[in-house]
Design a protein around this nucleic acid. Structure first.
Lengths: 222, 222
DNA sequence: ATTTGAATATTTGGATCCAACAATCCATAC
DNA sequence: GTATGGATTGTTGGATCCAAATATTCAAAT
């Protein structure tokens, strides 16, 4: 079915920044860009609107939805509730396969060169972390929340020290999983989430300032 | 937009049992039934599939998705995580409007005659409960989870004593909100959810037995 | 120069068309 | 009588058509 692939491609374009937040889009334009007719686009749109990727203006214009800072915080608040529970449950009935998957993702993360590799290794690690939580609805929910943040993540993909820190936290998590210390792992996970949140909001406010003033106020990047 | 109303109508039909779980459906059939052409149906389908209302078989047949007992339990597990937090936050910045809405829904619930009125009063009460939680993403999520269970709720709509119990719990919740006792309210809410869960699973297993054997093994209903 | 209004152009949403695909049904062969 | 193969029917998915709604442009009037 073309519709499904169109949905994924549009999501990918939004995540990658090819369709920047706030930009207006038309059905025909999307269709041309993806090399399909308008029909699959039209089937994809209601889904994308319902999932919050695209906003439908009253003028029946469409634009890529912006994620407000407040909304990012809201999502993190929910993740803080759900992910520690998923992790604890996952540790309780952890399989050896889970530990293997975790370790694999860990090394992938360490050896990643490109931001894309980093990203996919990170996703793989967290998926492995929760994989044994035996609540697939919860898994889907967590995945959805993480993905809705993804389009803001590439900002973060620049900073080296943050990745170092994240890697250390991942290693700590893996160790605690091996020891089956659900309580300890949850604590570390919450810290991990908080760190990601402040990193994100910092990167975002910096980016906003950049846009507003045309240039960063201070500090060397790159 | 017709599509949106088609989505709602199909959801409603599934919730009301007009489209029973497990039944096969065709696009043309749906279109005829709703008095529209196939086009709006086709735009609605990807959304309904993604949200788990309809299942798409590999043979490209469609059928109304069944909710497995395990899945119901999963949803309750998530609700137990989210709703107490939403309630506590809502109590912390409760407005007088919230208390008024709660009380109104409470009396509506008490005076309800038909199952539909009961249902809507219940929804209104819980919406009022969480309305001040200041996390709209969380609110949407909770609403989605509650609604996904709605189609199983009408089974429960029969038993009188259960409603009495639910009403008492609602009153207790309202009182605790008025006293701004977030902790106590959360505890009662969890008990409320648990009660609903066991009631649901009992009703469901009874219904399944009924279907399987053609009649209930023991016990008087009605 | 600014604003109002009409004419034009673009875009959307619903309906329809058509080809590909899957299931069903029937006939024939074993 | 059963099983296999083919024809037929029905349904889906993508493309296209058309009318209605909206934005845009351009001209005229204040």
């Amino acid at each position: 079915m073309l519709t499904q692939s169109v949905v994924e491609k549009i999501k990918g374009a939004i995540e990658s920044g090819a369709l920047p937040a706030g930009s207006a889009i038309g059905q025909q334009q999307l269709a041309d860009q993806l090399g399909v007719s308008r029909q699959p686009i039209r089937q994809a749109l209601p889904l994308l609107i319902a999932e919050g990727w695209i906003e439908s203006l009253p003028n029946r214009r469409l634009l890529v939805r912006e994620l407000a800072v407040a909304e990012i915080d809201e999502i993190f608040a929910i993740r803080r509730l759900l992910e520690p529970v998923a992790l604890a449950a996952s540790i309780d009935n952890a399989s050896s396969a889970m530990l293997r998957r975790m370790n694999f993702a860990l090394t992938e993360y360490e050896e990643a060169d490109t931001p894309a590799e980093l990203e996919s290794a990170d996703v793989a690690f967290h998926e492995a972390l929760y994989s044994c939580c035996s609540n697939t609805t919860l898994l889907r929910l967590i995945e959805q929340l993480r993905r809705s943040l993804k389009r803001v993540y590439e900002l973060k993909a620049l900073s080296r020290p943050l990745h170092k820190a994240a890697m250390a936290e991942h290693r700590k998590l893996a160790a605690l999983c091996k020891q089956r210390d659900a309580r300890g792992a949850s604590t570390v996970l919450i810290a991990h989430l908080d760190a990601a949140q402040v990193a994100l909001s910092k990167a975002r406010s910096a980016a906003t300032r950049k846009v507003t003033r045309g240039r960063r106020p201070t500090g060397n990047d790159a």
